[in-house]
Design a protein around this nucleic acid. Structure first.
Lengths: 146, 146
DNA sequence: CTGACTATTGAGACCTGATCTCGACAAGCA
DNA sequence: TGCTTGTCGAGATCAGGTCTCAATAGTCAG
């Protein structure tokens, strides 16, 4: 497990230095398969004995967001979370129970956006769709009898 | 202009007391036709000589959000803004230049959401679509020659 | 391998947005 | 009018995030 870590690769490809803290943060993030908050990441770093200062953590997060390997998400409650993800344009489907995040491609949304643009007269430059619900797992757990 | 203010009405209808500060905040909000941040609202209150404390401002905002006469918006930059709006389910189209907000009904999105649910296996409970772009006004200003 | 250059880091101050506490106050009702 | 209780204000406090600046460490030329 030297680092077939795609996050590290992205950093490298973009010409950033591959420093210890950055690798550590990248590894930490790669371990998530759902979203995480900055606070959780911080706690995880502490737990894993990775000495990464808060500032560095946020700097890494910012960097990775810029590189689109991480995205910032706004949960319904108003909290901020981050999700590791791929570069292409897509949307997020968040399990409101366990936090697992599925990526959703754009299936048909573009047309709707175009239609909205036509009706409103706005020139639409970007959009963001966030979906919240229960993943299969949590549905099963929520309704064991049904 | 005693108060045909729909925000005040909503408060009343929901059984909340119609206090001075709440009316003041409602009036302030009614004056916006785009989004506003909490800080802007605070400044406006100060400017209009309405003595409303920060806590009260936030409490009112929270209340109104609950009543769906105001919604909280997450701007692309990560800032929070609030928009006065109607109760029905809809989405927001925000002018990234002037902040004007248009409400967009659900034209066709429901089908897409259903399709996503089918594909992913998630039971989707809510969604949020935010669109960012240039309103007609700002398009004109941005490209006067073209 | 070494040194130098410069990006990056850490520690902690600081800032902004928002919430909480608690005594004082006032809206609404009898 | 007087009570009851929801609401308010002031300010402490919290959370999330950013900034500063000296120290450190990648990276690359030699």
């Amino acid at each position: 497990m030297t680092s077939s870590n795609p996050i590290v690769d992205a950093l490298d490809a973009a010409g950033y230095r591959l420093t210890g803290p950055r690798r550590a943060v990248a590894d930490l993030i790669a371990g998530y398969d759902g979203h995480f908050t900055a606070a959780e990441l911080e706690a995880a770093a502490r737990e894993h004995r990775v000495g990464v200062s808060r500032a560095t953590l946020f700097r890494a997060l910012e960097l990775l967001t810029e590189l689109h390997v991480v995205e910032r998400l706004d949960l319904p409650g108003g909290e901020h979370a981050y999700v590791p993800c791929v570069r292409a344009h897509h949307h997020h489907l968040v399990c409101s129970r366990c936090g697992r995040v599925a990526e959703v491609e754009d299936c048909g949304l573009a047309e709707i956006v175009a239609e909205i643009a036509r009706r409103s007269g706005y020139r639409i430059e970007s959009h963001r769709l966030e979906l919240f619900g229960l993943c299969r797992h949590c549905q099963a757990k929520a309704a064991p009898g049904a």
